[in-house]
Write a protein that binds this DNA or RNA. Sequence first.
DNA 1: TAATCCGCCTGAGGGC
DNA 2: TGCCCTCAGGCGGATT
Length: 278
Amino acid sequence: MPELPEVETVRKSLAPLIIGKQIKQVGTDWPKILINGLPAFHKALIGTTVINIDRRGKYLLLRFSDERTVVSHLRMEGKYELVANSRQPKDKFVHVWFTFTDGTQLRYRDMRKFGRMQLVATGTENQVVPGLAKIGPEPTAATFTVADFQQRLRRHHKPIKSVILDQSVVAGVGNIYADETLWLAKIHPETPANRLTLTEVTALHDAIITELAAAIAAGGTSAHTYVDAQGNRGSFQDHLHVYDREGTPCDRCGTIIEKIKVGQRGTHFCPFCQKVHQ
DNA sequence: TAATCCGCCTGAGGGC
DNA sequence: TGCCCTCAGGCGGATT
């Protein structure tokens, strides 16, 4: 599933492929993905040019000329690919396509149809897109400080695992990196967020920053079906310590990694390194 | 206001 | 082999 490092990798790989291209046509076989509906996309984008691609948390922001932005969330399985010829046959998982005037086509594939795209006027996305209106700081930004993070955690007494998945607390952390950063910080995933000590908050804060940076450098984690816009798999799955590793020894102490449910999410942890809070 | 539950989706995998 | 059931999970909206 794409989290911040994977979305950033998609952004970097997609940008050189489509920036400068002009939209000729937009199509879909599953209109629900296009929040404003296909006619609105068609009307607003035909004739415009891709001028940039930004990212905020797990959202991709495709910038077009004429002050148009398509805010794209890949959710579980979404991915982009550019094909050289728009007449090339589409497989059954391609649900949205943008045809360019040079004959190439940007295709959005999404096996489970969970992804969404919203068309907005550039600059209004933080007001118009619900997920962006309340999104927390980027882990890579200077505004993501220990003091700010601690203040956000104090507002919640549900398990810390659930709280760091909340995008209004910190942007971009998903299930894989939540488990990994809690293991790095030696915090049990069921610890109430407001019970963490300053030492633990600091360790978790630092782990989020370093882990996401390392994952970006490795091109993301290729769990399940993830590939970037050029079809390349990431390599960070080779560095995972707990995610999807239940039943295998902990890299730190050798205790067998366990899998439990926290907030309805599969959660992996080391029962020795990550002790329950007293 | 915060926490929890449910629907959206479909492929993979297990049980029979 | 084929059918049925459960699971996976990010997010928004409804409910508690």
